[in-house]
Design a protein around this nucleic acid. Structure first.
Lengths: 206, 206
DNA sequence: GGAAGGTTTAACCAAATAGTTAAACCGGTT
DNA sequence: AACCGGTTTAACTATTTGGTTAAACCTTCC
């Protein structure tokens, strides 16, 4: 019983902290607001997570893994590169739409305090073999004449940038392009097709 | 003389406030740090700009105009669309490189407090005729068979996204792709060509 | 020289905020 | 029923921070 209550409270805190930190960033977040959101006392927050820094570090690394984890599909799946990209863009766009503040949160906090992300990096470096397998796959398909030679780093960045930007800058985009919420949704649906086309076009052999 | 001193101090404040706000955002910025950066007393800051909000509003609207102003080239210049895009990407990339924190600053603050940007929008809407001229130009070149039909909103967003993202997420990109500062610079130089190619490809008639 | 007026500073204030403490609470155990 | 452990709370503390005040400091003008 105790355990259940305990985990329940802990989860409520984590959920609340996640929501507030993602939206407002470290500096914009007050412990009181997290407590309020979780429906608990501020002292209880410190009982479960000693300090704002400790709590933040936990939320941040969770968020980071969540975001980077979505990339695993690119490495793991054993399907042709072009097919892979089609599926990835579709899924990734949906994921970002459902987690609008996540990418900006990560980018901001890594900019603000790069140290927080250095330790998380090593966990990624360890999975180097997967990267090599992907590069080998690309090389193979290039030799087969399916793909033309290209720099995967740029393609990767282009894809991520085009996927993330409209959501990260959503109020700006809606404002500048004068869109309603519905038009924005429509716009995003169109984008999936357009971005996929552009990326495929930039790597497919003619 | 008074006037000179006055403007000198005011400029020092504006420069300092700009630098600190852009890097740390509204919440991360302390008036004391601005004062220190400007080499003046905190009270003097309040003498020139009554409150943090007032100072911020000024810096923000300056920054916003600076960023949006760079887009004017797209509307004003009377040269073929494809040529326009080539020049724009080259110049815009250099501009963002020299103002790394600017786009993220704008995006963040508009996300955090959309009202601050509503009033700035009207100033842009007033220049609607330029937008219509650009759209007419595109339509004309499409009819001439130079361009294929496309949605300018997506093309615009794609261009901006690919230009801005690597700088906004610079530490992340450098970390994940394991680049030195020199390699990053090199990478950006390559990007100009690649992004230009991709964008042109997505609008040029075959 | 000194009065006048804008500029600059040191010292201060009040509110916000991260973090602490000690007591109350509550479920299970004997 | 009394107690023991972990959990929760109200009340408090210390520090940070935006903002104020009153005096000191020029510079200009008479």
């Amino acid at each position: 019983m105790k355990q259940e209550i305990n985990e329940n409270t802990e989860n409520k805190i984590i959920e609340a902290a996640n929501s507030v930190f993602e939206k407002k960033g470290y500096d914009g977040t007050k412990m009181q607001e997290i407590a309020d959101t979780a429906g608990i006392n501020k002292a209880l927050l410190h009982y479960y997570f000693r300090s704002k820094d400790k709590l933040f570090e936990m939320i941040f690394s969770m968020a980071f893994r969540k975001l980077v984890g979505k990339l695993e599909f690119l490495f793991d799946e054993n399907i042709p590169v072009i097919e892979k990209i089609k599926i990835f863009i579709d899924q990734h766009t949906d994921f970002i739409a459902a987690n609008r503040h996540l990418p900006l949160f990560i980018v901001n906090e890594v900019n603000r305090r790069p140290e927080i992300f250095v330790k998380l990096l090593s966990g990624i470096y360890e999975k180097d073999d997967r990267l090599h397998r992907l590069l080998a796959q690309i090389e193979k398909e290039t030799k087969e004449g399916v793909l033309k030679p290209f720099d995967p780093r740029h393609v990767f960045l282009n894809m991520i940038a085009m996927n993330i930007f409209p959501f990260a800058a959503k109020p700006l985009v809606k404002g500048l392009l004068r869109m309603s919420e519905d038009e924005f949704r429509q716009f995003i649906t169109e984008r999936k097709r357009i971005v996929t086309e552009i990326i495929i076009n930039s790597i497919a052999a003619k």
